[in-house]
Write a protein that binds this DNA or RNA. Sequence first.
DNA 1: GTTTACAAACCAAGCGCTTGCTTGGTATGG
DNA 2: CCATACCAAGCAAGCGCTTGGTTTGTAAAC
Lengths: 215, 215
Amino acid sequence: MSVLLKPLELPVNQDNILQSLVAENLVSDPESARGRLLREAARLFREKGYERTTVRDLAAAVGIQSGSLFHHFRTKEEILKAVMVETIRLNTALMQAAMSSANSNREKLRALVSAELESINGQTGEAMAVLVFEWRSLSEASRAEVLKLRDIYEALWLDVLTGLKEEGALVADPFIVRRMLTGALSWTVTWYRPDRGGLTQNGLTDQVVAMLGLS
Amino acid sequence: MSVLLKPLELPVNQDNILQSLVAENLVSDPESARGRLLREAARLFREKGYERTTVRDLAAAVGIQSGSLFHHFRTKEEILKAVMVETIRLNTALMQAAMSSANSNREKLRALVSAELESINGQTGEAMAVLVFEWRSLSEASRAEVLKLRDIYEALWLDVLTGLKEEGALVADPFIVRRMLTGALSWTVTWYRPDRGGLTQNGLTDQVVAMLGLS
DNA sequence: GTTTACAAACCAAGCGCTTGCTTGGTATGG
DNA sequence: CCATACCAAGCAAGCGCTTGGTTTGTAAAC
């Protein structure tokens, strides 16, 4: 049967999702000038913070003059906003895909935890850290825009957690559990190192699920 | 019996602890010039971030000229460090006191969660938020100093969590649980508002303990 | 297949402003 | 009398961003 041919480790092709988002102009091609700048920006913003990163730093990271940046973005803040917006878009899509192959709410939750850990500690990790730690540097207008996108993302979580609550699998309040999970998972960015220390991302997911009594 | 006279809501007198730390010169008297500056600094650093807060902002907040700040602190960063160091010192002492009246490890954990929520969402909340979000603005030397103090604080948690694990009350790894709790509890600063919304700090503590299956 | 046209991408220079911090001097309280 | 706390003024450096002009890529026009 053809279903057996589906790769077990990676139920969805992340590259395909990225490519279709690029085609729809929702995220920048990572190999374009804009895409490379955003990746370097995410790296620098995470490393030094938005305010401590100068436009000269950003320009140097992609090998152009500082003034040339303003050809691509009108302001420095617009760069920060772009990093955040594109990251949410990508991860929302990845998360929907990760959930689509799960059948029960328990499986869905595991998929969500796993996907969020991947987004925080994988390729988009630097951008996710920026999203968590630099939102205060956004203007109010940009902030509203980002929050709107985040609401879509959060709805995915609440659906599953509410389902688990109704099944009786969850004791605490779904809203509060989600907020605790947001903090707990975001925080992994400050201590978890997938490359060293024996704990794999799957292992970490297990620990989270065990902590919630849902394993 | 005299133990019955002990107040139930507040097993330890927070003011007394503060006063003895002030006497030992470990934290500044909140009513001194230095203490007031640190409180205003914490407020501003949390509100706008360290980098976006200028020395002129800080000076204006306590009603002096910007240059006069440098009579009390040699650099702006020293102000940030002082906010962090004094906050950890105070909260470590408060936490030790909160635990002292608990008998079982379950009770101790509840005391720790409750105390940390209080430190994050109570009087020292602004300073705690600074501690979480602004550590990147510290020089490496200051960072090491702050981390040393934090280790003492963290040892309190690990003792209790390891005990619970040995009792079989905890399934997941103590180190990981602590790290998840750090993130989860810190994050409450971004959404929890004790004044509105019905959820008291005791109620929130209940939810956390329930989430861990320890209620 | 060369020329022309033109926009996008970039450079070199620097402007105007804000920043952390310094300096020299003046009150004030014990 | 002297240390502590402060002010008034401003410096040097670094900041985001602008400006005017040059290169580069591309594609139609001849």
